[in-house]
């Protein structure tokens, strides 16, 4: 029983971190109908920067997100202005290809600068755990979860309580209507892309502690994150959180009671099963353009 509770606890902690990582992806999709395939590369990029900071200056990796978050905000804003904005209006598949190419470029640059070695930041508390009865909660995971939950709460607040957030949500739901009331599509686009990238600032910092990574790790991450948002429903923030929790639990439970080898596959099977019943995902509304 303790074993089971342990697995559930670990699964939920991991799920929280996944949720944060997927939130940027779903936000960007929601506003611009762009699948940012480079989000995984953003995460690895941040993880690399965090690792470097930690290695050089000893800054705690999770605290380092104070630096990496604004950095990614700027990086996202620039990426939007220099790359994504140039293909606005062309078919959505072009944006997939563009961000995919961008991801490869980031991977290649990291390859050349940081080398093809696994890295992982190990702050002092890494090997310690909180013990709750028979269950041990690794400190790094708990801190990561807390940071993720905090950022998600801020994100939720920004989207629902501020004018900027309302503008972004308006643009999500009805771009032409939003334009009528003075919300510029290009402006919110850049903003949403920057915010979406900024979530990778925290996400990547947490990643650098919890998982060993190297430049090509981004494939693995992006496929996980894409799985989460498809499962939850593209563009839905609650969907991303639910999808992330399901992935976290599926991975931990299969690893504990089944075989580690199949744990990722189980998640993909869940996605296919959900799509069979609900093609738009768990929380996804049918998009307007789905109607003829």
């Amino acid at each position: 029983m303790a074993h089971f509770v342990q697995a559930i606890a670990l699964g939920l902690l991991i799920g929280g971190v996944y949720a944060l990582m997927a939130s940027g992806l779903t936000l960007i999709f929601g506003v611009m109908r762009i699948i940012n395939v480079a989000q995984g590369a953003f995460l690895v990029l941040v993880a690399m920067v965090t690792w470097w900071l930690w290695n050089r200056t000893g800054i705690d990796p999770i605290v380092a997100s104070v630096v990496t978050t604004p950095m990614m905000f700027g990086f996202g804003w620039l990426s939007y202005r220099l790359l994504i904005a140039r293909i606005r209006g062309s078919s959505p598949s072009m944006s997939v290809l563009l961000t995919f190419g961008f991801a490869l470029v980031i991977e290649g640059v990291l390859n050349l600068t940081a080398g093809n070695k696994f890295k992982s930041a190990a702050p002092s508390y890494f090997e310690e755990s909180f013990r709750v009865g028979a269950i041990s909660l690794p400190k790094a995971q708990v801190f990561g979860f807390a940071a993720a939950a905090g950022v998600l709460a801020v994100l939720y607040y920004v989207l629902h309580r501020t004018w900027t957030g309302r503008a972004i949500r308006a643009a999500t739901q009805n771009p032409s209507g939003a334009a009528l009331v003075g919300v510029s599509a290009a402006g919110t686009g850049a903003l949403a892309f920057a915010i979406g990238s900024a979530t990778a600032g925290v996400g990547g910092s947490i990643l650098s502690v919890l998982y060993p990574f190297f430049p090509a790790s981004h494939y693995e991450w992006i496929s996980r994150l894409l799985g989460i948002v498809v499962l939850g429903g593209l563009g839905s923030l609650p969907g991303a959180v639910t999808g992330a929790a399901i992935l976290g639990l599926a991975e931990t439970l299969t690893a504990t009671y089944g075989s580690l080898g199949w744990s990722t596959l189980v998640f993909y099977l869940v996605i296919m099963a959900v799509l069979l019943v609900r093609p738009q995902g768990l929380f996804g509304a049918r998009l307007r353009e789905d109607a003829a």
Partner: peptide, 28 residues
């Protein structure tokens, strides 16, 4: 038959996922 019944973006994502799923199956 699963992902092409609707329009939209799920297809591109699923194609990446299926490539990785195929790799997992081949390994296991």
């Amino acid at each position: 038959a699963v992902v092409l019944r609707t329009r939209g973006h799920a297809f591109v994502i699923i194609t990446i996922a299926m490539l990785l799923a195929a790799q997992i199956i081949a390994v296991n």
